[in-house]
């Protein structure tokens, strides 16, 4: 075997080959870039870690000041919920709302425009092959990028403003805000925050098959707001009617139905006193504790 060779650059540890120590580690050569280069370790890394610590502390302060949002458990039958993706998808979400890239032209919206945009970004080095690196000497590439940036910003802003507007006209408060509010109110009153996983709405209905009540409710349209299962809509701040007998008396219930309350409409003219009495009777019976 050729092991005796003096020029061999390896030593043998057992039957494994390891490079010979000494001379093998290349001394750093800082001549390729003129100026004040420095070694990565320890000089540069130390400064980097100091910056990293500052960033980390700022980040921790942010997470404590703004806890991650959490709404109410997913309920696929909730038809009033306004969907909204994370902010960095809004530009795409908004793009697909325009008539010339949706409906029968949707292929343009989901494949055409994003495909060209992201495709040319992916292949940028092969499309922009000139030697020039300075952006102000590459007018086409720079202009296209700036145009895309402005469009993305514009689409995102339109999408977000529209979402805010939608919340406003439907009187919706985002669920995670509702939850936080309720938790804060409970804390201020010295109570446990209401649990979202065992909602009060899960209370059983009493006398659920009362046909008379059903027909009055259908006629008056209570169910469109308070939900067909009478569990309410937490997102729109409409209370459940299950268990309402624990909260309100028969007289109070009749009063609310007759004269309304905040966003709850008055039914004093639409329903007869007798019908309201029937409803109030039935609702007063809706108690969890029985």
């Amino acid at each position: 075997m050729a092991h005796g060779n003096k020029n061999e650059k390896v030593v043998y540890v057992g039957d494994s080959r390891v490079r010979k120590p000494g001379g093998a580690t290349i001394p750093p050569d800082y001549t390729s870039f003129p100026g004040r280069s420095e070694a990565f370790i320890p000089n540069f890394l130390l400064k980097e870690w100091m910056v990293g610590c500052v960033v980390l502390v700022g980040f921790l302060v942010l997470t404590i000041a703004h806890p991650a949002p959490l709404g109410y458990p997913a309920n696929p039958t909730n038809s009033a919920f306004i969907p909204i993706p994370d902010w960095y998808f809004l530009f795409l979400y908004q793009l697909l709302k325009y008539p010339w890239v949706s409906g029968s032209y949707v292929a343009w919206g989901v494949v055409g425009i994003p495909g060209v945009a992201f495709g040319s970004l992916l292949l940028a080095p092969f499309l922009d092959t000139g030697k020039e690196r300075r952006f102000y000497r590459r007018p086409i590439a720079t202009a296209l990028m700036l145009l895309s940036l402005v469009s993305c910003y514009y689409l995102t802003k339109v999408s977000w403003d529209f979402y805010q507007h939608e919340l406003e006209i439907t009187g919706t408060i985002p669920e995670h805000t509702v939850r936080e509010e309720k938790a804060r109110e409970a804390a201020a009153a010295g109570k446990e925050p209401p649990s979202a996983t065992k909602p009060a709405e899960a209370v059983e209905l009493v006398d659920a098959d009362n046909a008379e009540v059903k027909s009055i409710m259908e006629k008056a349209g209570c169910l469109t707001c308070h939900a067909t299962d009478l569990k309410g809509q937490a997102g729109a701040n409409i209370p459940a009617l299950r268990g309402v007998g624990d909260l309100l008396t028969k007289e109070e219930l009749a009063e609310i139905i007759t004269n309304g309350k905040d966003k709850m409409p008055a039914f004093g003219t639409d329903l007869s006193a007798e019908e309201i009495g029937t409803l109030a009777d039935w609702l007063a019976k809706q108690k969890a504790t029985e």
Partner: peptide, 9 residues
């Protein structure tokens, strides 16, 4: 990794 240069620019 340790010795690679961090150029001025």
């Amino acid at each position: 990794v340790a010795d690679h240069e961090v150029p001025e620019h």
